[in-house]
Amino acid sequence: MASAKGKALTIDGLTVDFGGFKAVDGFSMIVGDGELRVLLGANGAGKTTLMDLISGKTRSTDGSVHLYDLNITNQEEYRIARAGVGRKFQIPSIFRELTVEQNLIVAGTREPSVFRNLTFGINREGRRRLEDVVELTRLGDVLDRPAGELSHGETQWLELGMLVSQGARVILLDEPTAGMTQVETQKTAELINRMKGDHTILVVEHDMAFVREIASTITVMHLGKLLAEGSMAEIESNQAVRDAYLGSGGIH
């Protein structure tokens, strides 16, 4: 296991100020190499904004983000992606008119330049990686289908497969089980557990059954700040978490 060795993602005092409103406010967090971290928090706690800041969609006003030793603070999205941060949005985002295989080829092409991509097909190394991803996501039967025709679950798995193809070292997942059936959620949990170790994963999720299935460490955000960090049991018994966000009902 690669876990607990290096720091894959180091966030230090990260702040974004939207004209006086600080959606993320002096937030710090370290995610270890190969770790699977779950990010919890009520609506408006700043979870998605935090992902926007890490992936370059939104520019921070203070603080820094490091991917391993590389400072990726406020870089262009495609540069952060190339450095090794993969991101899955809440709404499935795949290339609808390309086939599943073409989606994976586009994701797995490690060469970003236009001119170096003026050749056909993929090399043996790329083909091997593609087969690995197909095996991981179990999309072998639908490879020739346009991605727009996939079911909701298949679409999400394709997107996860694309992040793996991309070679992302740190993967940001925003509610990967939203809108999924019980069976689909189960398969997604399995898939994420298989990705754990090879990839460092940061997940925003509300489905507590799912969180129990996958989480080792949980970070709780509240009003843009770090509220608590620890194991499931620690978080469940943490008084500040109960007061601030879970209400009297506790974690379900």
Binding site: S55, Y78, A107, Q166
Partner: peptide, 8 residues
């Protein structure tokens, strides 16, 4: 999506 796969 293309951007987050690392393409300019």
């Amino acid at each position: 999506r293309a951007r987050y796969l690392g393409y300019n």
